[in-house]
Simulated scan of single mutants.
Amino acid sequence: MTSADLHTLTGAYALDALPEEQERAFHAHLNHCRSCTTEVREFRETAARLALAAAEIPPRSLHTGVMAALPAVRQLPPRVTGGRTVLPMSRRHIRRWQQRLPHLAAAACLAACGILGTWALHTQHAADEQRARAARAEQHAATLAAVLADPNSVTRTATLSGGGTATVVASSRQGEAAVFYSGLPVLPDGRVYQLWYGKNGTMRPAGLLTPQRATGSALLTGSPQGADAVGITTEPHGGSTSPTTTPLALLSL
């Protein structure tokens, strides 16, 4: 292992998370690397503070209860696994684990902080999306109301050849047009209803209706200025740049 590799092990060494061989190598490295020694000390101080922040003081009754129960607890015999006897840990191992417990607790705290941070970001993102959807819905409703309130708006209603009805309201003052539809047959998967502005027989895309919704309303994309009709066709999912089917309805403006 190179000296450059050893410089990256300060965090793992501070939390006693290195394999024994790497731990010995890094311990020797600390004897002549002041920067790593400083990093290890800072990591351990931070881990200790995190561990104390998450620590709880056990009630006095817990110690009394444990000590009172000890005489009645039978000591377990050595456990045999696969023909081998598993002996209890020595005091040296126990002390070593006791020394590691604060660092392990700190590592658990760091992991918990990461999980909580991710959850908080996800929750904030979901809340932002919800507010954005609510704002779009309010804007949609306000625009529809303005189009309907225009006394000079043009209103046309037609029955679609495939079933259902559609009403188009166009407001030159607002520069908007809206369609209100009901009873539209549900299209097969991969097909959508598409809106068009027509001018002298040439059609330009004006948006899609919400898939799998038989009744609703939609604002057409773009201004009706210069258009002489609004058409509705069925198109492949995602819409088309020009109609691929005969219009189900063509409403003159």
Rank of each mutant, 00 (worst) to 15 (best):
M1W: 03
T2D: 11
D5W: 03
D5G: 07
L6V: 12
T8W: 00
L9G: 04
Y13L: 08
A14Q: 04
L18C: 12
E20N: 00
E21C: 00
E21F: 04
F26H: 03
H27W: 05
L30H: 06
N31W: 02
T38P: 00
T38I: 12
R44G: 06
E45D: 13
A47K: 00
R49Q: 14
R49V: 02
L50E: 12
A51N: 02
A51Y: 02
E56M: 07
I57M: 06
I57E: 07
P58Y: 06
L62M: 06
T64G: 01
V66L: 14
V66A: 08
L70F: 07
L70A: 09
R74M: 11
R74S: 13
R79Q: 15
T81P: 00
T81F: 11
V86A: 13
M89C: 09
M89Y: 10
H93E: 15
W97P: 00
C109V: 15
A111E: 12
C113M: 14
G114W: 02
I115Y: 01
L116A: 15
G117W: 01
T118N: 07
Q124M: 11
D128N: 12
E129A: 14
Q130T: 14
A132V: 04
R136L: 13
Q139V: 02
A141S: 15
L144T: 01
L144D: 01
A146F: 03
L148E: 09
A149N: 07
P151L: 08
N152R: 15
N152E: 15
S153N: 13
R156M: 06
T159Q: 14
S161C: 01
G162H: 01
G164T: 03
V168H: 05
V169I: 14
V169S: 05
A170Y: 06
A170R: 11
A170W: 04
S171N: 11
S172C: 00
G175S: 07
G175I: 04
E176P: 00
Y181F: 15
S182Q: 13
G183N: 10
P188Q: 03
D189F: 04
D189Y: 04
G190F: 02
R191G: 00
Y193K: 04
Q194K: 13
T202I: 13
R204D: 11
L208Q: 09
Q212E: 12
G216L: 12
G216C: 10
S217K: 04
S223E: 03
G226M: 02
A229H: 06
G231R: 12
G231Y: 14
T233M: 06
E235K: 09
E235G: 07
P236W: 04
H237N: 11
G238P: 05
G239F: 11
P243Y: 07
P243K: 05
T244F: 00
T244I: 12
T245A: 14
L250G: 02
L251H: 02
S252T: 15
